[in-house]
Amino acid sequence: MRLRSILSEAYRNIVTGTTRALLLGIFLAAISAGLAIVDARSIIDIEQKADDFVSSGGSVRVMVARESIDAAACERLSAISGVRSAGALKETDAVVLRVMIANPIPAYVVTPGLIEVLGGNAATRAGAWLPAQLAKTLGVQPGQELVTTAGTLSVAGIYDYPDDGRDSRLNYAALLPQLATGVFDECWAEVWPLSKTRDHLLYSALTVDVSSTDPVIIGQLNTSRGTQFDGVGAFTGRPTRYGLAGCGLAGLILGFVAIRMRRLEIAAALHLGESRCALLASLLIETAVWSFSAFILAACALVFGVIPRNTAASMNVYIIDICGPAAAALTALVGTVLASFTIQEKYLFGYFKSR
């Protein structure tokens, strides 16, 4: 049979409803889009939990060792893969404002890297960094000056430090950046993803002091979101990951059943002398029409299931989950081939009796 005849036969079957293309396409689109959207939302939920964990300070590791932290070594930790930023901190004399002499502001000397840990940039201008709530209370903005008993103090910047369970010392404190030299009391490092190996790297910021008896403690800035977050484990272990395989299985079953429902028609065509190759080609064309139409519908539905969640990795999630509808469209063709070979001309009268 010529290609034109094959295409003509497939077209007539689709137009007359013999293929049931509309019903099969909508059904496959609904299944594959539903499974893909459920998995996409599961992945986005994991990402949002990870973002919440990081933004709350759960990924910031704090090593406390009084007068034993090498400030320069602590800053260099940021060069290690997986350590986003690192900086040292030590307490210093409180800042006493002339208008608030009875209420001094606790102050800490910090290295520039610690300002980065808090989401700022110490290179913007010289001066003190204040938490947002304290700056609001004092009514100051970056660039303004505070009159203290020791002279004027410029406000270099403002950092967010909400009261969400994190170490409360910096809720009401002034941070005074200085060069990363000398010995400090603490080393803060934002580590992501979390790793015990990277925790051990913090020890490289310690100075060697055999006479010191103070303990060295590594803790977490905020434990309110838990002490660990295994994003990789949550992603690979999510129950909805089987939805992608489910899409492929749905396409295979639907493609198989769609052809088996037409076994009498197919056996009769074989009995009348139509070649199996020509018949299979026509069936594959018909299946391709409804299965790839289903893919397009599912792809559009997945866009509305992913983009409204407005995450930075929406496109990555879309790429992962569009594989499900794509697999469904392809396995429908496989189901068509398998079903066609189960239909034999010799069973024509049996198919007729059981119709």
Rank of each mutant, 00 (worst) to 15 (best):
L3Y: 10
I6Q: 13
A10T: 11
R12Q: 15
N13T: 01
T16G: 03
G17L: 03
L23V: 07
F27C: 12
L28D: 08
L28N: 04
A36F: 10
A36E: 12
S42L: 01
E47K: 05
S55H: 07
S55L: 09
G57V: 05
G57I: 13
G58N: 10
S59R: 03
V60F: 10
C74P: 06
E75K: 03
L77S: 06
S78G: 11
I80Q: 12
V83C: 02
R84C: 04
R84K: 13
L89M: 12
E91I: 05
D93T: 11
D93R: 10
I101Q: 14
I101G: 02
V109W: 09
V110Y: 02
V117D: 04
G119M: 03
N121W: 05
N121M: 00
A122W: 13
R125L: 05
R125W: 01
G127R: 07
G127D: 11
A132P: 03
V140G: 01
V147H: 12
T148D: 13
A150M: 11
L153N: 01
A156T: 06
Y161M: 07
D163M: 07
Y172H: 04
A174C: 08
F184I: 00
C187Y: 05
W188D: 02
V191Y: 02
L194E: 09
L201P: 00
A205D: 06
L206A: 02
V208P: 00
V210A: 14
T213G: 02
D214N: 12
L221R: 13
T223V: 14
S224Y: 10
G226E: 12
Q228K: 09
G233F: 04
T236S: 08
P239A: 07
R241G: 11
R241A: 14
G248L: 08
L249Q: 07
I253L: 12
I253G: 02
I259R: 00
L264W: 01
E265G: 05
A267D: 11
A267K: 06
A268D: 12
A269S: 15
H271P: 00
H271G: 10
S275N: 04
R276K: 15
C277Y: 12
L280N: 03
A281V: 09
L283I: 01
I285G: 01
T287V: 02
A288Q: 03
S293N: 06
A294G: 08
L297W: 06
C300A: 13
A301M: 14
L302V: 11
L302M: 09
V303M: 14
I307A: 04
M315C: 03
Y318M: 05
D321S: 04
C323M: 15
G324W: 13
P325S: 10
A326W: 09
A326C: 04
A328K: 01
T331D: 05
A339P: 01
T342N: 01
Q344S: 14
K353Q: 15
S354D: 15
